[in-house]
């Protein structure tokens, strides 16, 4: 039986690690700081996948981020997705050559030619589409470019459009709940068509084990991503995983 997935997302600008709240970024420290203050192996051994996002404002900042990808792939034997600034097949190649298994695409998600080029080279399963949204009284507004640019598409059309893209998975990220630790907003789930065939990664709002449990119980949600390191300090994530398995959430077990 296929298991649900718990994913950890980390945001980087150059060599610095950031936290995000409602898409406003806060610098926390550099990679060495991260390693010194957190036993990172406990985190990587408690999650199914890692997502690394390049959130640098400098459009040309690719090289430092590739070094970050390389560092992670040396130390953890789980799938690593890399995203941010994937505006060409060339950038996609650089991320994959640095060790990424999958590519997260947000701002260029509706550029079909780019997606096709990447899918032809690395396969559709290598592309994870990422969609940020705001909920205004159950009307959903979709955004790209770190939440700064509206995408002109209606909720009732969005999932049909996503279904036709040459991508493997979708991240749905709530801008309202992002980094708040207040729990997930589940209201977009009922807009997903029953026959929607791409796995969904749900993000935005996880603050504690109970939030993860609530989300994993939803049949529409295949995976959860959290980016809030401070909520899961020490063995927080490891404990959460244990508790979820106890509560019969189908998560992978490792020897």
């Amino acid at each position: 039986m296929i298991k649900k997935r718990l994913i950890f997302t980390l945001l980087f600008e150059k060599d610095s690690f950031f936290l995000s709240r409602n898409f406003r970024l806060q610098k926390i420290g550099n990679y060495d700081w991260l390693k010194k203050n957190y036993d990172f192996s406990v985190i990587t051994e408690s999650v199914d996948e890692i997502i690394l996002l390049n959130v640098s404002r400098d459009e040309n900042e690719i090289q430092n981020f590739c070094e970050i990808i390389k560092t992670f792939t040396k130390e953890c034997f789980i799938p690593i997705s890399a995203g941010g600034k994937i505006s060409s097949l060339d950038v996609a190649k650089k991320y994959i050559q640095s060790g990424a298994d999958k590519l997260v695409i947000n701002s260029n998600l509706f550029k079909k030619n780019l997606l096709k080029k990447i899918a032809n080279t690395f396969g559709e399963q290598s592309i994870v589409g990422s969609l940020d949204y705001m909920n205004i009284n159950d009307n959903f507004i979709f955004y790209k470019k770190n939440g700064s640019t509206k995408i002109n598409i209606k909720t009732k059309n969005i999932f049909d459009t996503l279904a036709k893209l040459p991508i493997g998975e979708i991240i749905l990220n709530s801008i309202d709940m992002d980094g708040t630790s207040n729990g997930f907003d589940f209201s977009i789930l009922k807009r997903i068509p029953k026959n929607f065939q791409k796995p969904i990664i749900y993000a935005g709002g996880a603050g504690n084990y109970k939030h993860l449990l609530d989300a994993f119980k939803k049949k529409e949600i295949d995976s959860i991503s959290t980016a809030n390191l401070l909520n899961f300090v020490g063995d927080g994530l490891q404990e959460a995983r244990k508790q979820l398995i106890k509560k019969n959430i189908k998560l992978a077990k490792w020897i």
Binding site: M1, I2, K3, K4, R5, D48, E124, Q125, G168, E169, N195, F196, Q197, K198, P199, D222, S223, L251, A252
Partner: peptide
């Protein structure tokens, strides 16, 4: 195929 598996495609994640 979705028809035969009744599951999402690709098959992605940990499985037994």
């Amino acid at each position: 195929t979705f028809k035969e598996t009744k599951n999402k495609i690709p098959h992605v994640g940990f499985n037994q």
